[in-house]
Design a protein around this nucleic acid. Structure first.
Length: 465
RNA sequence: GGCGGCAUAGCCAAGUGGCUAAGGCAGCGGUCUGCAAAACCGUUAUCCACCGGUUCGAAUCCGGUUGCCGCCUCCA
């Protein structure tokens, strides 16, 4: 199994430091508004990595933080007229709803920044003691000139970057404009609202970078197998995490950095709060299922940007419908003698799926194998070339794929006795060529959200959603 | 300005040296069908942004050009 490690910019064989345990950290949301699809892709990607590792028999300990203490949550809560905690509680809850909608497994922990401030202060203290950080006007900054490997993750060339491109340096009193903030002196407004923590340097609050570093090491220790995040956060956020963590431990902390590409709209990055930002909630409100959104976000390779549009989402829905239909047909497959080639087909698709997934989670390749299988297996259903065991094996096969993908639906299409009787009566009427009566029954079934589909082997049905 | 990435059919998208360039959507043709709806099967790139080079052989390696995207230290 190989992953593309951002540190080396190459695919590398993956071995956990302490098998069969795998530790994994994912940058979570800043809970000041609803998640947009760019963030959702980050979470779906992490979920995919975790599920695939688990399917390999590894035990994954996964931590995803919740950033509830930063400029945006502070500003957002003030503008909304709520206390910080009350405000972030609300969006944390919304975040959990979104995870559920996308069938994302909960992490083993979703630590909140506000509940780990002691860890952050302690970490800062250690960095100051070791000479990696300095206090200036009651804020504490990281001195990047002290960290020899600074830039090794993002490969920035410090002498050539344009300082101040995205930050107003007037707000800081750093020795070097390239240094970054660890603890920031609380503003007057923050002090009034009680948003400050007493330290030897004064009343401060932590920065985003030290929050992630502290929570990551607090929950996973000094060696973390996998850290997943979006490419937009490589610099400075992830670079700074490396600088903090390695300065503290004196050795490499994150072994494999996995970064997913962004979701764009009209080929421009989706930015929260801007008009091109599409939240998951608004997509769901339009009537799309979280399952379809998950499939769309999953269906392209994670290292390629994905341009979101509703037509693209519709197309993903139709693709998924083909998969759904195959499973539905399987449930109604007339049993007969098993076709000779079935075992080979199953073996082939399994092998191909695994090969593609092992190759840096090549989902498009893996899905192509699944759809090739479906095309080859469909005629077997039509011809009645499956026996009970063969059918069970196909369902088991799909369930195996779905333990990783989590986009299929296997719910049984059992009808209530009343509905089954209606189906039977309609078929009886059809046999007797009483088509008006048959259509009447069909309409009755439809009003009970049952859609009849006739086949040469008799009527089948699906539940209308 | 620096660093990184991308360019494959109408659309989306795999493929990084060698059989006839995966797969999905849309389209077209067919099968099935009382009707309807659906489904299933088949089919759709002599060619992989452009120019040059390496090689027996390149979408795939190298150089250059063009276009687009991301990041540049508290914006996710």
């Amino acid at each position: 199994m190989q992953f593309y490690n951002t540190t080396s910019r190459e695919k590398e064989d993956f071995y956990p430091a302490y098998p069969p345990q795998v530790t994994m950290y994912t940058c979570g949301p800043t809970v000041f508004n609803l998640c947009n699809l760019n963030q959702c892709r980050r979470f779906v990607f992490a979920d995919l990595v975790k599920r695939y590792l688990k399917s390999k028999g590894l035990q994954v300990k996964h931590i995803m933080n919740v950033t509830d203490l930063d400029d945006r949550t502070i500003d957002g809560s003030e503008q909304a007229g709520f206390g910080l905690r009350e405000f972030t509680d609300r969006y944390t809850e919304e975040f959990h709803h979104d995870l559920d909608a996308l069938h994302i497994e909960r992490a083993d922990g979703h630590p909140r920044a506000s509940e780990h401030v002691e860890d952050m202060v302690e970490l800062t203290r250690k960095l100051v003691e070791k000479g990696f950080a300095y206090e200036k006007f009651r804020s504490v900054y990281y001195d990047i000139s002290r960290f020899r490997d600074y830039g090794k993750l993002s490969r920035v060339n410090l002498s050539k970057i344009q300082v101040g491109k995205t930050v107003d340096l007037d707000d800081y009193e750093k020795d070097n404009p390239r240094d970054f903030t660890l603890l920031k002196r609380s503003t007057l407004s923050e002090l009034k609202r009680g948003i400050f923590y007493k330290t030897e340097w004064g009343n401060v609050r932590p920065s985003w970078h030290i929050e992630c570093a502290a929570m990551c090491m607090r929950h996973l220790g000094e060696t973390v197998d996998i850290h997943t995040c979006g490419t937009d956060l490589i610099f400075p956020h992830n670079e700074n995490l490396v600088a903090i963590a390695e300065a503290d431990c004196g050795h490499r902390v994150v072994r494999y950095w996995l970064h997913n590409e962004l979701v764009t709209v009209n080929d421009k990055k989706m930015v929260p709060g801007q008009n091109n930002s599409v939240t998951l909630r608004e997509v769901l409100d339009r009537g799309y299922s979280g399952r379809v959104v998950r499939f769309l976000l999953l269906s392209q390779h994670y290292r390629k940007p994905m341009n979101f549009s509703y037509p693209a989402l519709d197309a993903a829905g139709r693709t998924l419908a083909r998969l759904d239909e195959f499973i539905r047909r399987l449930g109604f497959a007339p049993l007969g003698e098993r076709a000779a080639g079935l075992d080979q087909l199953i073996y082939d698709v399994k092998t191909q799926f695994t090969q593609h997934m092992d190759d840096d989670l090549n989902i498009p390749g893996a899905l192509a194998a699944v759809f090739r299988f479906i095309r080859q297996a469909n005629p077997l259903i039509t011809k009645g070339s499956l026996d009970q065991e063969g059918r069970d094996r196909v369902i088991e096969l799909l369930q195996g794929f779905d333990s990783v993908l989590r986009v299929m639906e296997f719910e049984s299409a059992e009808l209530s006795p009343d509905d089954a009787l209606l189906v039977q009566k309609r078929e009886q009427a059809r046999q007797e060529k009483k088509f008006d009566l048959a259509d009447e029954y069909r309409d009755q079934l439809r009003s009970r959200r049952i859609h009849i589909i006739d086949t040469p082997n008799g009527p089948t049905w699906e539940l209308i959603k």
